[in-house]
Design a protein around this nucleic acid. Structure first.
Lengths: 190, 190
DNA sequence: TGACATGACTAACGAGATTAGTTACAATAA
DNA sequence: TTATTGTAACTAATCTCGTTAGTCATGTCA
């Protein structure tokens, strides 16, 4: 007993992410993750602050990953295509990592967890920059950013939770929704 | 013992909704609802099929309520204002009944629960009619309906889960998002 | 070499969901 | 009126999880 197995926080979050992406966030319980790592449930407390702590680490990891995904998408395209590239990357991330994606909600209240708050703000800032490069007026920026975020999040959330019943091509629906939102933004701001 | 208290399914769902709207869907556990009704947890099984059954009844109730809210909103305005009225009513419902609203997700897979499926389709149909009255082409109807649903759902979900950090007027953001989506729809379809 | 921090462990408890079996009451049929 | 039956409450017991407390082996470092 007491054998050190050499488990790192990365291992813990990785195992949790794997379970969550396969079976849903709820399935990534302390006991399931411990099982996956080959340790007993109470030993999880040597790595994370209980279930809430595990969820927090998953959210942090998800935010960092999403930031990188956004960053790659934004820089791999001409500025006028950045928003669309980010939108596609967002949806791809959510579909490939549904468990991690759902770990991003709810967001911490301001002042509750600054590190996580910053990490979750990062991808939003990248999207904001991409919008700015399209010529969105600074005055309207926050409103339009919110609208676009709502459309992106709402779409992938409905999609992964079975909200779209009709067997009509969903890729097309997404592309159209992003087009409507982006072109709508521009026509409003001139 | 064995006293009949005269609890109806309506009572059960009502008590669950009250708890869920106040403390979140998770808080509406079988034991918490039983407590609220003054009965023991196992007696809940005389009214609903376990926790999953309770959630299902809550979703059904929420869908019926939302349908009525949509119906009222759609008929209390000229056709060209119906979509906006529905959008506002949608957000109001989600903010007044956050627990019930979150009970609407996930949706049942087709064939899994026809009654619930139909009930949840009803408000979507009302929104579809309102869109049709704006002159959206039938060909595009499904894509555009999905886009609008995504924006509405994403907005209220982000709002209630603390996703909007900035202290900038959220009513305005919502109104702008709906405007963008609706006018975008129209310009795309000609 | 010995003290200490780390990270595993066992034991124990509480909350919640669930199942099985029991019982009181009300309505209805003989 | 009385016997029967269904409803809806109950207790008892079990399982899974999360959590805390306390223990112990191992590697590091003075």
């Amino acid at each position: 007993m007491g054998r050190k197995v050499g488990i790192t926080l990365k291992d813990v979050v990785g195992a949790a992410a794997t379970i969550a992406d396969r079976d849903g966030l709820e399935a990534a319980s302390l006991s399931a993750v411990a099982d996956g790592l080959g340790i007993k449930t109470p030993s999880m407390y040597n790595h994370v602050a209980g279930l809430a702590g595990l969820r927090r680490e998953m959210a942090l990891y998800a935010a960092v990953e999403l930031t990188e995904v956004f960053s790659t998408a934004a820089s791999s395209a001409p500025p006028d295509q950045a928003v669309r590239q980010i939108a596609d990357a967002y949806r791809r991330f959510a579909k490939e990592h549904p468990g991690l994606y759902s770990a991003l909600s709810p967001a911490p209240r301001p002042g509750e967890d600054d590190e996580l708050y910053e990490a979750m703000a990062a991808p939003v800032l990248i999207l904001a920059e991409a919008l700015a490069s399209l010529g969105v007026a600074a005055d309207d920026a926050i409103h339009l950013l919110r609208g676009l975020r709502a459309t992106l999040h709402g779409f992938v959330d409905l999609e992964t939770n079975g909200g779209f019943g009709m067997p009509v091509d969903i890729d097309t629906s997404f592309s159209r929704a992003v087009d409507v939102m982006v072109s709508g933004l521009l026509s409003q701001t001139g």
